[in-house]
C-alpha cells in the first residue's frame, strides 16, 4: 500500500529564513512545507526537534542534512506550517522510511545526500543539528500551543509579534474590529471596553487595547476560551 504524506492542518504561510522554524516551533508537531527556487519539500518537526528533511527540485531529491544545508543556504524561503496529529506524524515517518529519508534518532540506514528518487548509496549521516532556541521576549510570552498569531494593529498596519499570520486573514477587518466594538459599547453604555472576542470555526480572535495600539491574538478553535483570555490578561 502506498503511504501518502499527510497534508495536516495548515496554520498559514509565511516567508522567512529556515532558522525561523528552529526558534518558533517549541511546541509544534507537524510538517513545515517549504518552497524555494522552483523546488519544494518539507521538514518534520516534533516540539522544536528536527526529525527529517526532504527537498525536490525537478528530478533531483535532497534528503537529510543535504536538504537542510541547502534550505539554510537559501535565505528567505516560503514556509507553511501544517500541524499533525500523532497518527499523521506516524504516517509521515512511515513515508520517510519508504522514501529513504533519514529520521533523527533512528538506527535505520541513512539516505544519500543527493540523488534521484531512487536511493543509490547507503551512507551514515550524522543526526541533524538542533539549533538552540533564539526567542524574542514577546514570542516566548505567547509560545503556547494553539496560539496561531499575536499581532499589533498600529498606524503602519498589522505587525506580527509572534506566530504566523493566517493566509486568509482580513487585516483591515481585524484592525477595525476594536473600533467597531468601542462604538457599540458607547451606544449601549457599557463604558470603556477592555477587550473584544470573536469566535469563528477557524479560531478565536481576542482583541484588546494597549498603549501602542490594538493587540490581537488568534487561537485555534480547540483552545478553551478561558485560556485565551487568561493569556491575554497575563501579558
Amino acid at each position: 500500500m502506498t503511504v501518502i504524506l499527510p497534508e495536516g492542518t495548515s496554520l498559514g504561510t509565511m516567508q522567512a529564513p529556515l532558522t525561523w522554524v528552529f526558534s518558533h516551533t517549541g511546541k509544534f508537531v507537524g510538517k513545515v512545507a517549504v518552497q524555494v527556487q522552483g523546488g519544494n519539500g518539507f521538514l518534520l518537526i516534533r516540539k522544536g526537534e528536527e526529525i527529517a528533511y526532504w527537498f525536490r527540485y525537478g528530478k533531483m531529491v535532497l534528503r537529510g542534512s543535504a536538504a537542510r544545508e541547502y534550505l539554510l543556504s537559501q535565505g528567505v524561503i516560503e514556509l507553511t506550517l501544517c500541524r499533525y496529529t500523532e497518527e499523521e506524524f506516524s504516517i509521515a515517518l512511515e513515508w520517510c522510511n519508504g522514501h529513504g529519508v533519514q529520521i533523527a534518532g533512528s538506527a535505520h540506514a541513512m539516505t544519500p545526500a543527493t540523488g534521484s528518487e531512487e536511493p543509490r548509496v547507503q551512507t551514515q549521516v550524522e543526526p541533524p543539528q538542533t539549533q538552540p532556541p533564539v526567542r524574542q521576549v514577546p514570542a516566548m510570552l505567547w509560545s503556547d500551543d494553539g496560539i496561531v498569531m499575536v499581532g499589533r494593529c498600529g498606524a503602519g498596519g498589522l505587525e506580527i509579534l509572534a506566530g504566523m499570520k493566517p493566509a486568509d486573514l482580513d487585516e483591515r477587518a481585524l484592525c477595525s474590529s476594536f473600533g467597531v466594538a468601542r462604538k457599540l459599547a458607547d451606544t449601549l453604555g457599557i463604558g470603556e471596553i477592555s477587550d473584544f472576542t470573536l469566535e469563528t470555526r477557524s479560531g478565536t480572535y481576542l482583541v484588546s487595547e494597549e498603549d501602542e495600539g490594538i493587540l490581537c491574538l488568534i487561537a485555534t478553535p480547540d483552545v478553551p476560551f478561558g485560556r485565551v483570555r487568561a493569556l491575554l490578561q497575563r501579558r
Binding site: 486568509d168 482580513d170 477587518a173 481585524l174 474590529s177 466594538a181 457599540l184 459599547a185 449601549l188 453604555g189 457599557i190 463604558g191 470603556e192 471596553i193 477592555s194 477587550d195 473584544f196 472576542t197 470573536l198 469566535e199 469563528t200 470555526r201 477557524s202 480572535y205
Partner: peptide, 22 residues
C-alpha cells in the same frame, strides 16, 4: 474576519466593557 461574507459565519462575539458586556 470569520472568512468573508457568506462563506463562514462567526460563532459569537463578546464586547467586554467596564460597565457590562454585550
Amino acid at each position: 474576519l470569520a472568512g468573508g461574507p457568506g462563506t463562514e459565519r462567526y460563532g459569537g462575539a463578546i464586547v467586554e466593557g467596564a460597565g457590562g458586556s454585550l
